[in-house]
């Protein structure tokens, strides 16, 4: 659905590339996470993919269409949820959605239904400028669905949202995936990437260093340890055991047989730990 090959982009039109030799493919109905710290090239890549920046070098095909020459049909099939709440503050939530709905040539969603979906029904006739930051972000999120996009670009969709609202947004993303929408998710939040993405790409200093599924990454980079809490002489002890070393395996079996184990957890690596290991950089 999205094919990117040898993408380069320079804001200064010289050899100082913000994005360098980026290549990846995203299948239809897949959630693809684009992960990296601030300034890594995530937004630049997304802007080229959505036609907001010109395609300087490389090839970008979105559902077979050249992102370097975006036309009406290109914009009719994509939706973009920006991180910044770029709304008309003097228009109400409903008027904002109504206005953008009229910009498309394809059947659009009912604006009121979208507001209901992101829990903004009550605030429909309130000006967007009077919304809290979280409400504005939800409105931007709802707006990105107005044209029933086949390809959906999400930039930090749950940044700054409370846990309940985050859960609602994540649920909508999962539902859209089930409906076959291809999702390109840009974030530096590893938890949401772990929860939602089928595959993730790590990007640092404009270059992709790794692409795989979160599960494969964990298997590849995890330590294969279990962390056990067990009771010994009336007190609770906590210890890690390797699943590869024979002595550790024997000790763990003995604890299980004695029935003194209280908790047991596999100690797999988090995406954040893997990111740091692979790239040598932290996600800030």
């Amino acid at each position: 659905m999205i094919e990117v090959e040898g993408l380069y982009h320079s804001y200064t039109n010289d050899e100082r590339y913000a994005v360098r030799n980026v290549s990846f493919n995203i299948k239809e109905g897949e959630i693809f996470g684009f992960l990296g710290p601030n300034g890594a090239g995530k937004s630049t890549t997304q802007k080229v993919l959505t036609g907001l920046l010109p395609l300087q070098k490389g090839s970008v095909k979105i559902a077979g269409k050249d992102a370097g020459k975006p036309d009406s049909s290109f914009y009719n099939m994509i939706g973009v949820s920006f991180e910044q709440p770029n709304l008309y503050r003097k228009l109400t939530g409903l008027e904002n959605l109504d206005y953008f709905a009229k910009m498309y040539d394809v059947p659009t969603e009912d604006p009121m239904e979208l507001l209901r979906m992101v829990d903004l029904e009550e605030a429909a006739s309130k000006r967007a400028g009077e919304y809290s930051k979280g409400m504005q972000q939800r409105l931007v999120f709802a707006r990105s669905l107005i044209n029933k996009p086949k390809i959906w670009f999400l930039d930090e969709p749950v940044s700054g949202l409370d846990p309940t609202t985050s859960a609602t947004i994540k649920e909508i993303i999962r539902r859209k995936k089930k409906e076959g929408v291809t999702i390109f998710l840009t974030t530096h939040n590893m938890h949401i990437a772990e929860e939602l993405c089928d595959r993730v790409a790590f990007i640092v200093a404009g270059e992709i260093s790794l692409i795989d599924s979160p599960r494969n990454l964990k298997l590849r980079y995890g330590q294969k340890l279990v962390e056990v809490e067990y009771r010994l002489d009336g007190s609770v002890k906590k210890e890690s055991f390797s699943l590869l070393q024979e002595t550790d395996k024997a000790k763990l079996n003995s604890l299980i047989e004695k029935g003194t184990v209280e908790t047991i957890h596999s100690k797999e690596a988090t995406l954040e730990e893997i990111f740091i290991r692979v790239t040598g950089r932290e996600l800030r």
Partner: peptide, 13 residues
């Protein structure tokens, strides 16, 4: 300041 032109730019408008 509202950056609304960016939102407009990704529509067929």
């Amino acid at each position: 300041s509202e950056e609304t032109i960016k939102a407009y730019s990704i529509t067929p408008g």
